[in-house]
Design a binder for these strands. Structure first.
Length: 844
RNA sequence: GCGGGCGUGGUGGAACUGGUAGACGCGCCAGACUCAAAAUCUGGUACCGCAAGGUGUGUCGGUUCGAUUCCGACCGCCCGCACCA
């Protein structure tokens, strides 16, 4: 039998699947099949498929094919997250049109994805830069606006004065723009926001319903939302104004020794106008970077404003009002009261500026008079002291008491505070979804009625700042309300908006509304979503927010978009460096044992740790080269083998060759099936163990795939293939049955090979049209089983026990073992524990 | 600092609700076939020991007839967040 020709077979079967339109999901699904929506995070069209994509889409395809075979009505679509900066960079650097660049990349990547043999319904494909998609997104944005989920507000932004654009925090490096190198300014701009904070509580509570999400992701989202319960309270200041602060520790109010404002607090800013020293102090505070290490070491800085604040329970008790660098404007009210004894930051600050430190919470069992706070603040539980009417209370009771009294006095209110902030979506970028608003001198900011607002055909990247702002022909328009002259909003939406609802669009990508409710309600939620952990917070939180917002507008029934989430690990590879410390690519080296040498000249190369494949480390292997050398099934099999899918996988040549060997091995086994009788002909004489092996594999591969344990499913298939190879003398029909099981079970992982083998086994229908095999439980029951015999918990022997043997008989068999008698050493058993079918433990 | 996760052979990793630790793959060793190589096949491969046997799942302790699994303390590694009041 000829060697398996992966290239020929894969092309052939891909065409065959296409020809029969096997993976096209009908728009109007009828019948009583259960639905299953399998989705992988759609890619950015960078131009090339990388190993991370290959792993992601292989996993998704394995699930999709498995579910389809099981009889589910499967939706498995693909699209392109196609707006974004790389296209602009390419346009600027190479003078191409970002649209052309993007669509060319999409075509190239689609061709590569097709080589992987994915069971995707390509009729539903779209790119977020398609006018048809962003048209609907503009509608959705206006729907959200009308519902009050969108607002326009002032935002402090990072402004690059050279590039004339807003920068994301990540794009500010050492206070300078990443591209221009110009010192970034803080600027207040009118920007569009999503009111995601209105959904903070339900987004938090919703996490508890997501039982098929990784705990890790739920924890990250929980922390990001950052709910804390506390008290908002008012201090009366010596300048006759009031100051609101937020605290989670109102119980420590009598330990207060100062009040502190953020440098960005409006009151600070106001005072700075007439106080040059304060101005200088604010500048000093800004110098401190936001890098982790800096914050860790950053010294507490304070500035005494000269104002004093009256204690809420004793107006004569005056506290100094400071400006402190560690108080964040973005959290709570941007002002705090400092209680040094029970907060480390306040303590550091108080020690530096000579403020008093009064312990007011004393650990239970300790004497208040003797309790001293030294260099470490006490944040544990205890009872109140030095706190007038709170003395003796527990922390919890004291919190409640203070809240009660201040609320009664109108000086405070219990509140829930969130770390989550509203989502700023305006971007001064030309390659994105235009924000469908018009600015009219007379009517103000008015929603566009005439949608879509299309991007201009040509974008001029030679201008400073946003080309859309410079393009007068494009941004000059008339007001939808009064018909007078007006200009378009020249900002585009954050690309995270594009990916916040695409999963709903796949239900009916041609709908004339953003989502077709009927189709979306049938398909949503996504049953299995698969992607990288890097999207644990932003993308997944935004998509959850969008789904809840759409739910409130009756666009979809579901509140959560993704019922099952799986975050796959990265693909890594060894790294190499030459004598000069330059990275060396894997295809420039030869390995000899553990050592590596340059192919060219044989100079030794240092072998470094396995790290995520990246261009900068030059340790990238392109999937297309592997497909060209071995075929798609080999790369697919590799991606699913050995390493659990959530962990990082290391790509190795040896591993790839091993996978290739297995492909050939399965093909050889299938070839040996020629002439074997079809299943069911003379099964009764079939080798029992062969049949048992096949049915055990069916049961366990099915179970492993249900739980996405691809690596364990793969191991079971190796076991089955070993069993088939070893059972040459088994009954022919049993061998055939086992082979057919092997082919059907491996089809989700290696679909092309499976089709080729299936055909070789004489079938005319495709594997892709064949139902998933079912195991016969009676075949898994054996007449006898092996039981371990322990003496005092130590294994001494194994015995073969008839299935229906009674305990006394088992005990007798166990005691009859020579090794057991030796271990007993003449002693009498005190107790014999028998776990049926598993173990006998003799205790002496 | 806070939160989450993980420590098993040379290596990636198995082990269901506590019940024969190391499945399966990679690598390695030996052998068969071959003029030779590749490919393929067969056998072996936790550690110590000739063997009987002993020791082994990061360390120490606990619960149990029995612990990789449960509990406690510690050590180490990874990830996320971070001056969040």
């Amino acid at each position: 039998m000829a060697r398996y020709n992966a290239k020929e077979s894969e092309t052939h079967w891909q065409q065959e699947w296409d020809r029969r339109a096997l993976f096209v999901t009908p728009d109007d699904p009828s019948g009583d099949k259960p639905k299953c929506y399998v989705l992988e995070m759609f890619p950015y069209p960078s131009g090339r498929i990388h190993m991370g994509h290959a792993r992601n889409y292989t996993m998704g395809d394995c699930v999709a094919r498995f579910r389809r075979a099981q009889g589910y009505n499967v939706l498995h679509p693909m699209g392109w997250d196609a707006f974004g900066l790389p296209a602009e960079n390419a346009a600027r650097d190479k003078g191409v049109n970002p649209r052309d660049w993007t669509y060319e990349n999409i075509a190239a990547m689609k061709a590569e994805l097709k080589l992987l043999g994915l069971s995707i319904d390509w009729t539903r494909e779209f790119a977020t830069c398609d006018p048809a998609y962003y048209h609907q997104q503009q509608k959705l944005f206006l729907d959200f606006y009308r519902a009050g989920f969108v607002y326009r507000g002032e935002a402090d932004v990072n402004w690059d004065p050279v590039d004339m654009t807003v920068l994301a925090n990540e794009q500010v490096i050492d206070g300078k723009g990443w591209r221009s190198g110009a010192v970034v300014e803080r600027k207040k701009l009118s920007q569009w926001f999503f009111k995601i904070t209105d959904f903070a509580q339900e987004l938090l509570e919703g996490l508890d319903t997501l039982d098929r999400w990784p705990e890790k992701v739920r924890v990250m989202q929980r922390n990001w939302i950052g709910r804390s319960e506390g008290l908002r309270l008012r201090f009366e200041l010596s300048n006759n104004t009031g100051l609101e602060i937020f605290t989670t520790r109102p119980d420590t109010l009598f330990g207060a020794s100062f009040v502190a404002l953020s440098p960005e607090h409006p009151l600070t800013q106001e005072m700075a106008r007439t106080n040059p020293k304060l101005q200088a102090f604010i500048l000093e505070c800004r110098k401190t970077g936001t890098a982790e290490a800096e914050i860790e070491k950053a010294e507490k800085l304070g500035f005494d404003t000269g104002l004093t604040a009256g204690h809420p329970f004793d107006a004569n008790w005056r506290l100094p009002v400071m400006v402190a660098n560690f108080v964040l404007m973005g959290y709570g009210t941007g002002a705090i009261f400092g209680c040094p004894a029970h907060d480390q930051r306040d303590l550091d600050f108080a020690r530096k500026y000579g403020l008093s430190v009064t312990p007011v919470v004393v650990p239970d069992g300790q004497d208040a008079a003797a309790f001293v706070v030294g260099a470490e603040a006490y944040t544990g539980p205890g009872h109140l002291a030095n706190s007038r009417f709170l003395d003796g209370m527990s922390v919890e009771d004291a919190k409640a008491e203070v809240a009660k009294r201040l609320e009664a006095a109108g000086a405070g209110a219990r509140t829930v505070n969130y770390r989550l902030r509203d989502w700023l979506v305006s971007r001064q970028r030309p390659w994105g979804c235009p924000i469908p608003f018009v600015h009219c001198a007379k009517c103000g900011v008015v929603p566009e009625k005439n949608l879509p607002v299309l991007l201009p055909e040509k974008i001029d990247f030679s201008v400073k700042g946003n080309p859309l702002a410079a393009d007068k022909a494009w941004n000059t328009t008339t007001c939808p309300d009064c018909g007078g002259p007006a200009t378009r909003d020249t900002d585009t939406l954050d690309t995270f908006v594009d990916s916040s609802w695409y999963f709903a669009r796949f239900a009916d990508p041609k709908a004339q509304a953003p989502v077709n409710a009927k189709a979306a309600n049938y398909w949503l939620p996504v049953d299995q979503y698969i992607g990288g952990i890097e999207h644990a917070i932003l993308h997944l939180l935004y998509a959850r927010f969008f789904t809840r917002a759409m739910n409130k507008l009756d666009m979809v029934d579901v509140k959560e978009p993704f019922a099952g989430l799986f975050t796959q690990g990265m693909v890594c590879h060894e790294t190499y460096k030459d004598a000069d410390g330059n990275w060396v690519s894997p295809d420039e080296i030869v390995k000899e044992g553990n050592k590596a040498f340059l192919k060219d000249g044989h100079a030794p190369v240092e072998v470094g740790a396995s790290e995520k494949m990246s261009k900068s480390r030059r340790n990238v292997i392109a999937p297309e080269t592997i497909i060209a050398d071995y075929g798609a099934d080999t790369i697919r099999w590799f991606m699913l083998s050995d390493t659990p899918p959530e962990r990082d996988i290391e790509w190795t040549d040896a591993g790839a060759e091993g996978c290739w060997r297995f492909v050939q091995r399965v093909w050889r086994l299938a070839g040996e099936a020629e002439g074997l009788p079809p299943p069911g002909t003379d099964m009764k004489n079939g080798t029992r163990s062969m049949r048992a092996a096949a049915h055990k594999a069916i049961a366990s591969v099915t179970d492993h795939l249900e739980h996405l344990r691809f690596n364990s499913a793969v191991a079971q298939l190796y076991t089955l293939s070993n069993a088939i190879a070893d059972a040459k003398d088994a009954d022919g029909a049993a061998r055939r049955e086992a082979l057919e099981a092997l082919v059907l079970l491996s089809a989700p992982m290696m679909p092309h090979l499976a089709e080729e083998c299936w055909k070789a086994l004489g079938h005319t229908k495709l594997v892709a049209e064949t139902p998933w095999p079912k195991h016969d439980p009676s075949l898994l029951e054996t007449d006898s089983h092996t039981m371990a015999v322990q003496v005092n918990g130590k294994l001494r022997a194994t015995i073969s026990v008839p299935r229906d043997a009674a305990n006394p008989a088992i005990e007798a068999m166990a005691l009859g073992e020579e090794a057991v008698q030796r271990a007993l050493d003449g002693k009498t058993p005190k107790k014999v524990i028998i776990v049926p079918g598993r173990i006998v433990n003799i205790v002496v």
